[in-house]
Each structure stands twice: as structure tokens, then as C-alpha cells.
Design a protein around this nucleic acid. Structure first.
Lengths: 251, 251
DNA sequence: CGAAGTCTTGATGCTCATCAACTAAAGTGG
DNA sequence: CCACTTTAGTTGATGAGCATCAAGACTTCG
């Protein structure tokens, strides 16, 4: 009777949410959790490569990424693409569209993803009913902007080696926070084209830079898994300063 | 008895706010306006070049820029600087710090500025008392993130000519929205170093690119005023698509 | 087994950074 | 009032970093 759920599908109730037990997210009162669950209208599984939001789409949905990776991007008419930031489990997605506007960016599923989709056009209702959640959403928005800020500094002012080191450090750390490091390694579904598009580099130069860092023994990337072998050196190259872990809101 | 106010100082009451009469901002109920005014603790005039927020500063203030220009930026240890976005009259500033965290970026006054400074640590109180204003603040946050998105696409994927054209178009349009175009020209206080730091280019190459566009008759920049002489061509070069003007919240 | 996708490596050249020097404007102090 | 300094803009010369082109190795998949 019950369909077999894929390994990382959204659980039927938010009370069973795997993410909340990682310790990375702020605790919420049970009644707030119930509200969040009522705010969620459906769960959705999408395949790698799907467009979650298309550029210039109207009426995009608001959702939380429960499992899998996605990324926001913008393109120019001749095909040049810039990845703006990566979305990992726990990230709230689609806020910019929720204000009744055209999406200025696309969002694509990088891997198979499970999503908790929220009611359409109800963000204002949420703010009114639960100002605290509104406050949390604003925090998430400011937090994501901070990521884009970092990426802009990287694309604008770091050289290729620094950019690659930054990307590896930054993603590894984010994955660590949500408990996705196993045996010192993380599942790493990006291909070199994704890395190039995130860093504002060409595919070929990205390849050569990655090879150089790997040859120097700074990281290992094989079988879709990333392992950092010399975080000290990578942090120095990237000027990566980790901020102390801060509990994040989760909707 | 009354001190003479500089030409663009904040008026004593929000009801006399020049910005609200530009037609660029959403109307608010008088009682909401009173609340905003009570939320404002002081007005402040700062000189060009002042640090409004320092990188790594804690306890930065939340405020609205009433007049003048400022910019957000990040630097690397060897001095490389990336300007993240420019702040113009009406922009809410300091949201990312207001969540009790260290500022990940600096903010500098580009010109003399007048600010409406809000109560410290009271953002949550605002959300609770006026969810609508909380919603507006989230909109502003998402809107600013959209600007950074644009700048990341520019720095990551556009060439020098496209970058400069983009910057000129984008700023001109923003200034137009808030009524700062006079006789087809705007006051333009950026020097070439600012432009270079915003676009991820060197000073010298920025100069050469600006000269080329000016020689081609696309724009004119002298005496601190910018005039666009061929917006069609600039828009084509930059792939600048203007979004229809949308009323913005103003606190 | 062919086709498509990804990774890899070498060769070449363009865009842009860097270095250097000069001009013009504006402030500073004797 | 005029040397002096400082700041911003300009222009040419040189070269490095990265893009582009091309081609081969390897894997996956229908």
C-alpha cells in the first residue's frame, strides 16, 4: 500500500525530519513545527538536471531543499552561465520569486532532490501568523546574500588557484555542518563545468587548476567523493576564515 | 536657535521625507509611518570616506540611507578589494549585522551621507509589532541579493566592455527611479578606482574601457556628472534588461 | 559497440594586469 | 602668491593568466 520511499525522501511529518536531528538547526516549539507542516502543501522528488525554477519564470514555488544539491544561476544570451550559489539540504529556496515577481535567476537540481513545497502566495500570511518565522526567513535571506557576497569577492578578486581552494573549503564546511561528512569525505556531485561556472573560469583552466591542487596533495576528488588532505594549506590559499557554527533556522 | 541643516539632511519627521514623495516607494498608513519614526533613534550626517560599518565589526547599526551614496565591500589581506553593491537613497543598510553577528563586509560612505538610524537589537521587536514591515524588510533583503546576483554575473562572465556598460546602465536606472536624474544627467561620485573595484578589473583597464565607450559616444562623464548618450547601444552591450519599475518599501 | 559525457593535456593567442611616466587639478603651507 | 604635495585621470609598453582550440583517454549507457 505504501509506496517505497527513496532513501532521502521527505518524511510524512516534519517531526521525523532528519535535518532537525543534525544539531545544525535551531529548535522550534512543537506547535510551530505543526504550523510549518501545515504550511507545507506537498513533498516532491525531482531528478538531477530538472529545472526547479526557470529564468524569467513567474509564480515559482517556495520550498525547502530536504535532500540533494541544487544551484542558482544566471545566463547570458550567448550561453555564458554564472552559478550564483549552491543549495544544500536545509536551504530555503525561491524566496526572491515569492514576492509576485519574475525570477531573475534559474534554479537547477544538481542531483536527485527531495523538496518540501510550501503554499503559494502565502508568505505574507506566514509573517502575520508567525512573526518569528518571518524573522527567521529574513535571517536566511541575509545569510544567502552573504554567500553570494563571498562568491562575488571570489570571482572578482581571487585568482584561479584561490578560487578553487575557496570552493572546496566552503562546500566542505557547509556539508560538515549538516552532518554529511563521512570518514573525512563528502559526496561531491559537481562536475568541472559546474565548478568553472561557479568560479567564472573556463572548463579547461578549472581542470588544470584542480589537477595542480590535487598533485600538490591538497585534496582528492574521485568516485564522486571529495576529501580535503591539507585544509591548512587550502585555507591559507583561499584566505578562508571560518565563522563559528551558528544554528540556522529551518522551515 | 535651529541649526542650519545641510541640503539633504534627514527631516525631523518622517512625514516630511523627501524620498516618499518621489513616487518610487510604497505608501504606508500614517500610523505605520509613526511607528517607523519611533523606531528611528537618531539621524546622522557622515562625511565622504567614513566607515559606516567596518569589516568584522560587531554590533553594527541598522539604518536607512537618506541621502548620498555608500557601498558595501570585502577585502583580501593583500588589499584587493571587491565592491559588492552600491547603496543609494532609500536603501536599508546593515541588515546582515542586525542578527547579532560579525559583519562579513564593510560599508563606506562614498559621498557625504545622511542616515536614519534605527534602534539597536530591535529588529525582532519590529517583526512582532508590525509583521508587514518585517515582510517589507525581507523583500528589501531579497532585492539587494538580486543586485549582488547581477554583479556576480557581471564579474564572473562579462568582459570589460560589458561590465562597464552594465554598471553605467544599472546605476543610472536606479538613480532615475528615485528622481535623481536632472536634464538627462546624474551626479556621479564614483572615481575609476571604485568602478574597477566593483567590476573586478584593474584601474588601468577600467580607464581604457571607459575612454573607449566615451570615444564611441555612448556616454559622457565629466565634472562628476554622468550622461548616457546611447542607452540603446549600452543596453545591447551589457544585455541589460530593465525590469518594470516596482514600488519599493521604505523604512 | 557506437554514442555521448567527462576528464585530461598540449598549443596558441587574446584579454587584461602590471609597470612606468606624464598631465591636470586641487589642496597645503611658507 | 607660488613651490610643493597629493589625488585622479591618461596613455604606452610589456607580459602573465586565463580562454580558446584541438585531440585523445576513459567511462557510462542505450
Amino acid at each position: 500500500m505504501n509506496a517505497v520511499l527513496p532513501p532521502h525522501a521527505c518524511p510524512p511529518s516534519c517531526r521525523q525530519c532528519r535535518l532537525r536531528s543534525t544539531g545544525a538547526f535551531t529548535a522550534v516549539q512543537p506547535e510551530v513545527l505543526d504550523f510549518i507542516e501545515s504550511f507545507r502543501t506537498q513533498t516532491l522528488a525531482v531528478e538531477a538536471g530538472s529545472d526547479l525554477v526557470r529564468e524569467n519564470q513567474t509564480n515559482a514555488r517556495l520550498f525547502t531543499l530536504y535532500s540533494g544539491w541544487a544551484f542558482r544561476y544566471k545566463t547570458l544570451s550567448d550561453g555564458r552561465r554564472q552559478i550564483l550559489n549552491f543549495l544544500l539540504p536545509g536551504d530555503l529556496v525561491g524566496l526572491q520569486q515569492e514576492f509576485g515577481e519574475v525570477s531573475a535567476h534559474g534554479i537547477e537540481a544538481l542531483t536527485d532532490c527531495s523538496l518540501c513545497v510550501f503554499q503559494n502566495d502565502s508568505l505574507w500570511a506566514l509573517f502575520r501568523a508567525h512573526p518569528r518565522l518571518g524573522y527567521d526567513i529574513t535571517w536566511l535571506s541575509a545569510h544567502e546574500e552573504g554567500h553570494v557576497d563571498d562568491n562575488l569577492l571570489t570571482a572578482g578578486r581571487r585568482n584561479a588557484t584561490e578560487r578553487v581552494a575557496m570552493l572546496l573549503m566552503h562546500l566542505f564546511r557547509r556539508l560538515d555542518r549538516i552532518g554529511l561528512v563521512e570518514d573525512g569525505a563528502v559526496v561531491f556531485p559537481l562536475n568541472q563545468q559546474h565548478i568553472a561556472d561557479a568560479l567564472g573560469l573556463s572548463l579547461v583552466h578549472t581542470n588544470k587548476t584542480l589537477r595542480r591542487l590535487a598533485t600538490l596533495g591538497l585534496h582528492e576528488l574521485k568516485n564522486g567523493r571529495l576529501r580535503l588532505l591539507n585544509t591548512r594549506a587550502l585555507a591559507r590559499i583561499a584566505e578562508y576564515y571560518d565563522t563559528p557554527p551558528r544554528l540556522m533556522p529551518l522551515l
